[in-house]
Design a protein around this nucleic acid. Structure first.
Lengths: 138, 138
DNA sequence: TTCCATGCAAAGGGTTTGCACTCTC
DNA sequence: GAGAGTGCAAACCCTTTGCATGGAA
């Protein structure tokens, strides 16, 4: 968690061609140290636990940069807020619409079979699969 | 399109247990006459073509009612706006992130295989599959 | 010095809410 | 006349933008 981890994150940023700054390291620490699914606001809150002067705009800027460099993945799952996923390899999600909890789906639970026929001039960006669940009425 | 269509929509509303009103018929005409994918604002615009005094709030209220009664399906595809789909049977979507165009995916293009293991006390609401595409860079 | 990153506050845009009016049963 | 549906405008919330400050090359 200490020096080594910061060095790792700094390396990750450099490899991605992102100039290293203090705030980016902090945001990277929150998002890139372990698999998480966080909204921008949750990222801000976690960063501010250790660096309270961090601005909301910087978090949004940095999330955008991380996303463009494919360090994180944007998940459109809830109309209220965007989530960011520190796992960028292809995988699917399960979303609890009652609590807002978002998790990875175990690899072998579901599989998508087939190739969509894309209109000419279009290229595939990604395939999102979201399993929506809710608590059973008592 | 004329009387018959309005009667059909009125019947659909009644069967769903939704009291029939003039605005609901108009919104139903826009959403329930043919397969469409529209945002709330697009629905409002189409309704206002024939009934200009319709309010935004009524459209949002009605969309919520239609969704609860499962006459339409809500599609969370774009962080900017929610889309409403007049087809409620299980099917998947293709979304052009450059233009915002949203279409149904042909039935046999993709198939989801397997059953997700749900946490106890949870029930499946639905499985969303979104194929995101973009125009190829020239 | 030039450029980019940052912080702050204000603006933006889709959606929701509060409230008064209207209509229906 | 009670309850629901509607219209209008203001409020809300997440996100973006404008602008001035500060730091790195």
């Amino acid at each position: 968690m200490e020096m080594n981890q910061f060095r790792n994150i700094a390396d990750t940023l450099r490899r991605a061609g992102i100039p290293v700054t203090f705030q980016r390291l902090e945001i990277g620490r929150v998002l890139l140290s372990e698999p998480v699914h966080l909204s921008a606001d949750q990222v801000l809150a976690r960063v501010r636990e250790t660096t309270p002067e961090t601005s909301r705009a910087t978090v949004y800027n940095t999330l955008k940069v991380f996303k463009e460099k494919k360090l994180i993945r944007e998940l459109i799952v809830d109309p209220e807020r965007v989530f960011y996923d520190s796992s960028t390899h292809p995988h699917y999600h399960i979303y609890d619409v009652t609590t807002g909890m978002l998790c990875d789906l175990p690899e072998d639970d579901l599989k998508v079979v087939g190739q969509p026929v894309l209109p000419p001039g279009m290229e595939l960006e990604e395939v999102d699969v979201i399993v929506r669940v809710r608590s059973k009425a008592a």
